[in-house]
Amino acid sequence: MMDLFLQTLANALIQSGTYALASSGLALAVGVLHIVNFAHGEFLMVGAFVAYWLSVLAGIDPIVSLVPAGAVMFAASGVIYQASIRRVLLAPELNALLLTFGIGITLQNLAVLVFGATPRVVHTAYQLTAVTLGPVSVGVAPLITLIVSVALLAGMYAVLYRTGVGKSIRAVAQNRTGAHLVGLDVDRIYLLTFGIASALAAIAGAMVLVRIGASPHMGFGFVLKAFAIIVMAGLGNLTGVLWASLVLATAEAFVRTYVPGGGGAAEAVFFLLIFFTLVWRSWRTA
């Protein structure tokens, strides 16, 4: 009984790492650029496919591929930013929403066209091994993805709170006009932040590839859950993303384990969490 409980907790912890990685990028874009990036899930998908093809064609381990996956999406998002996002930043929010939604659909269908709709999986030696800690058994692959996620998030926090660039990013997030007036190059900071956010999505994609696989439609589920997480965290609140990811992953894991037929129900848990968060917020501020 206790063993099952601990195993469920371990599963939740692993899953929350991927969620936090996928959501931090989204939270960064919302918090700094004030845009809701609906294409975030597709950026994740692009990262997964970059890692997949590097594994198939060049034999590069998908975990190692998080570097090229992040780099590809960092560069691609720079082009996307310069060509489109930059132009809607000052427009009403709906414009950015529609634009990124369109970018997402385009990327998804391009992926179907080029790669086909079949889900792809990679095979590595460590996917078949597991480590056992007392009653809990965890696959080596998921464990690695958790470690990578924690390391990357720690790195992101270190950059944001310990470096000059990070301070500039926070300044732009807190007051765009103020940032202009102290002479920060706001447009370049937006470009950089959007690049980091997109690279985080792509890296999360490579992690999902290792654990589950890649498919052109994989992004949608993740972006919906990432939205649930940043809503729970409070828009743009990066620290909140960590615990919100933990809450969502734990709720899903417990529904999956303890609710009869919970496998399907787990996928709807995020709706419930958004619902309760919003109701509670409006209750508190009413």
Binding site: G164, K167, S168, R170, A171, Q174, N175, T177, G178, A179, L181, V182, G183, L184, D185
Partner: peptide
């Protein structure tokens, strides 16, 4: 960068940063 500084009426501070962080950002660029 040329040497013209503007103190706006709305002050436009970085609200969640400390006084010292705000000041340091003034010299940053």
């Amino acid at each position: 960068a040329q040497g013209i500084a503007h103190v706006p009426e709305a002050r436009e501070l970085f609200p969640l940063m400390t006084v010292q962080d705000n000041l340091e950002l003034g010299a940053f660029a």
